[in-house]
Computed example of a mutant assay.
Amino acid sequence: MSIVFSIAAAMLMIAAVLTMATALRGPSTLDRLVALDVLIALCMCGLGVWTAFSLDSTVVPSIVALALLSFVGSVSIARFRVRDDQK
């Protein structure tokens, strides 16, 4: 069963690297915002994989906290964003 967890962790790491490349390359702030939301979701998935692998449920509150921070951050950036074409 640890092979399944290793494959899941490797896939999450590959997705995180690709997401970071998108966040660094993104032409607009909204592209970067979406990439950072995906990166936080990947972190939450990684914590979920670790929780399933270690059978330790003490990590679950941190997953909930990450979800809350991601939501609040996304809403606040989308609300107070300055247009990219303005200088």
Rank of each mutant, 00 (worst) to 15 (best):
D85M: 12
R79K: 12
F80S: 08
A21T: 11
I77A: 02
M20T: 10
I7V: 06
G46A: 05
A35R: 00
F80H: 07
M44P: 02
L33I: 04
V60S: 04
V82E: 11
A16F: 04
M1D: 15
L24V: 03
D84S: 11
S6Q: 10
W50N: 10
S76G: 00
A41T: 03
S76A: 06
R32K: 06
A9V: 09
M44R: 07
L12D: 06
V17S: 06
M13K: 10
S6P: 09
A15S: 13
A78S: 12
D31A: 02
L30R: 11
V72S: 01
M11R: 08
A67W: 06
F80N: 05
L66D: 04
R81P: 09
L42E: 02
T19F: 04
D85V: 09
L36Y: 09
A16W: 01
M13Y: 14
A23R: 00
G26P: 02
V60Q: 01
T22N: 11
D37V: 07
A16P: 05
Q86Y: 15
L36Q: 12
A35V: 00
I7S: 12
V60N: 03
S2D: 15
T19R: 07
I14Y: 10
A10T: 15
I77W: 02
I3N: 14
A65L: 11
V64S: 11
M20H: 07
I77K: 00
L55K: 14
P27D: 06
T29V: 10
S62R: 12
L47T: 02
A78Y: 04
I77R: 02
S6Y: 11
V34L: 08
S76H: 03
